[in-house]
Design a protein around this nucleic acid. Structure first.
Length: 649
RNA sequence: GCCAGUGUAGCUCAGCCGGCAGAGCGAAUCCUUCGUAAGGAUUAGGUCGGGGGUUCAAAUCCCUCCACUGGCUCCA
């Protein structure tokens, strides 16, 4: 029997059923056949020895393919394991896949420190140097189980054979030198193909990713076809650290998270200037969206969240800060929705009143696990630019769509690329499947109506309803949710919220939970990494610094500063050289320097310089001020005055 | 919470095979008054993350707690 194989160029090739990837490659051409490393069958990377049993699409992977790197790193994981076993024969291998950046191998029964890693890395280099051939061999599954019982006892491999491979008659092993590992492949042809190899990090990982399972040691590494590519990878990693928001935040004196309040951010005056700009910005957006600003307290009695369901479904994880005082139980709010629902419930609303929208810069507290805290990105105390809209069911589409359109505009103004995610019902949820399905559909419809691309994340929603999450990517490639739009049919139900409809009967409103920036803490972190600390002028803690060339110009400097109303301006009034003052201003990432000496004072002009080292002399201070006001009002992403004016000349 | 690493002056870090706590930057004072990325001198600044232990002697060795970093697990 023959099957039909669709190739990347759109053509199809008929081959015998059971032909391997490599055999098909030989059919296409002998050169391609001998170059074959692996195949991509219906989108999945597989070994060149895999057989094709039905009509499929096939792409041949050679040294030039993107997927070649995955196979190379898969082999690198084996090289690591081989080196490990040479030095620590008692270690047990669990799993060792490739990743976007390299590979890792989870291992048990071994205690490693940094020195051990260095020795293992050196041994790995010897294995690469030896250029061992990588061979694949097939084995009956029963024989494989016996192998991992007798010859090389390993319960992890036995579990994989019993579960993942339960339907297979035979399984594959890969061998290089004395090393042998149960593995589906693909791999490159020999260890010598690895040009650059490095072990990077060590961490704990749970077997099968389950906290209740045994803790394994995970060793991360990476590999490249050449040493040069490895070097440039390591350099990029170092360069990314230069943009780390914690480092920049320290340098710019924006915030600190002291030992006395882990996970709670102290905003310094500089950081608060940035935060206030963000706050004002969100206020204007909230007004556009029709929100009324409110404020509700952090401290509430437990009963509030008992009713809303937060206590059961949010607090179950131990994230709630609760304590008893004088016989009553109090807690710090982990979310603002229950308080906003209370504000809604105080009054009886007519269908004509809806939507009712409350916004709040609400400070909430969640007891995140200690190991989870991470700079501004993961904290315990945070202020959300939160908001809740109480709407009629017939208003859902318009409300969500409008909110999304404002969010799109907002992220665009920051020059941010956001990844939209549609997160669906998880295990710990309230409400019926039917309600969830309706809510999820509504969010999907809104995303589609806006023409937004989105990924679906199954089971990731909040407990009360599905959500659209907006993720930003940090310098280390980690994704963080910033804004969010959630649709909730459940809390109105639990809290018995109502409005009076056209029919003079009680009806149930729908709640929209949304945050545009998410939290000011995390969003500031994203801003810092996004701009590398070089804020747009409107966000910069210090927008202009006046640099007098000598103390003689201090009076002129002060007079000038007085004319810069509404601009965050300082004067470099300490005695030092101009060069030194310029350097200090660059270090502090000030967008504009105004330099004044005797000449400027005499003619009533200024000389300006921006942080891109562009300069212009003989500028009218009033004209500069006007341009500055305009740049700030327009929220231009980069200081552009000098560039603009230079173009005119 | 789990595994590994880190914690020394305001900041960045050296000292860590036990023997008087250091440097650069920053700060203060003084000199210099300077034309587009570091002028000079002097001075101040430390419970070496906290607690306990070993020792004649601990920043250094051991135990423990706290915090931070990278991951795991969990979430804006």
């Amino acid at each position: 029997m023959s099957i039909s194989v669709r190739l990347p160029d759109g053509s199809t090739l008929d081959v015998e059923e059971g032909a391997t990837v490599q055999e098909v490659a030989y059919e296409i051409g002998p050169g391609l056949g001998s170059d074959t490393v692996a195949g991509v069958v219906d989108g999945t990377l597989v070994a060149r020895e895999e057989t094709l049993d039905s009509d499929v699409s096939l792409e041949i992977v050679t040294d030039d393919s993107d997927e070649y790197l995955d196979a190379l790193r898969h082999t690198a994981a084996h090289v690591f394991a081989q080196a490990l076993l040479r030095l620590h024969p008692d270690a047990k291998l669990a799993i060792g896949p490739w990743t976007d950046d390299g590979f890792y191998y989870d291992i048990a029964h071994v205690d490693l420190d940094e020195d051990d890693l260095k020795q293992i890395e050196a041994e790995a280099h010897r294995i690469i140097e030896a250029d061992l051939t990588v061979d694949r061999l097939e084995m009956e599954r029963a024989d494989a189980i016996e192998y991992y019982e007798e010859a090389a006892p390993n319960r992890f491999k036995r579990e994989i054979l019993a579960e993942e491979a339960s339907g297979e008659a035979t399984v594959s092993f890969y061998e290089q030198g004395e090393f042998r590992d149960l593995c589906r492949g693909p791999h490159v042809r020999s260890t010598g193909e690895i040009g650059g190899f490095a072990l990077l990090e060590m961490s704990a990982a749970y077997w099968r990713g389950d906290e209740s399972n045994e803790t394994l040691t995970r060793v991360y590494g990476t590999a490249f076809p050449s040493e040069a590519e490895l070097e440039s990878f390591l350099e990029r990693r170092e360069a990314a650290k230069e943009r780390d928001h914690r480092r920049i935040g320290q340098e710019m004196d924006l915030f600190s998270i002291p030992e006395h309040s882990p996970g709670c951010v102290h905003f310094h005056p500089n950081g608060m200037r940035v935060r206030r700009e963000l706050e004002e910005y969100v206020r204007t957006k909230n007004e556009e969206l029709g929100y009324e600003e409110v404020w509700t307290p952090e401290l509430n009695k437990k009963e509030l969240w008992q009713k809303s369901g937060h206590l059961d479904f949010f607090g179950a994880e131990g994230e709630f800060y609760l304590w008893e005082q004088d016989g009553d139980e109090y807690g710090l709010k982990p979310m603002n929705c229950a308080n906003h629902a209370y504000l809604y419930d105080r009054e009886k609303w007519s269908y004509r009143d809806l939507p009712i929208r409350f916004s709040e810069f609400g400070t909430v507290y969640r007891n995140e696990q200690s190991g989870e805290l991470s700079g501004l990105f993961r904290v315990r105390g945070m202020t959300q630019d939160d908001g809740h809209a109480f709407i009629r069911p017939d208003q859902i589409q318009a409300e969500i769509t409008h909110t999304l359109s404002i969010i799109e505009e907002l992220y665009g103004e920051f020059g941010l690329e956001a990844v939209y995610k549609l997160e669906t019902k998880g295990d710990h949820s309230v409400g019926s499947d039917d309600i969830w399905a309706r809510a999820t559909e509504a969010l999907r419809d809104a995303l589609e109506e806006r023409g937004l691309e989105y990924e679906i994340e199954e089971g990731e929603a909040a407990f009360y309803g599905p959500k659209i999450g907006l993720d930003a990517v940090d310098v280390l490639g980690r994704e963080w949710t910033v804004g969010t739009v959630q649709l909730d049919f459940n809390i109105p139900e639990r809290l018995d919220l109502i409005y009076i409809g056209e029919d003079n009967r009680e009806h149930r409103p729908v709640m929209v939970h949304r945050a545009l920036l998410g939290t000011f803490e995390r969003f500031l972190g994203v801003m810092l990494e996004h701009f590398g600390g070089d804020f747009p002028t409107w966000l910069a803690p210090e927008q202009v610094r006046i640099l007098p060339i000598s103390d003689d110009q201090l009076e002129y400097a002060n007079a000038l500063a007085d004319t810069f109303t509404g601009v965050r301006v300082t004067i470099a009034d300490r005695s030092s050289t101009l060069g030194r003052k310029i350097q200090a201003a660059h270090d502090d990432r000030v967008p504009y320097m105004v330099i004044i000496g005797g000449n400027e004072e005499e003619s009533g002009t200024i000389s300006i310089r921006d942080r891109f080292e562009r300069e212009l002399d003989d500028i009218d201070p009033a004209a500069f001020k006007r341009a500055l006001d305009e740049e700030i009002a327009a929220k231009r992403l980069e200081p552009a005055i000098i560039e603009t004016w230079s173009d005119h000349e």
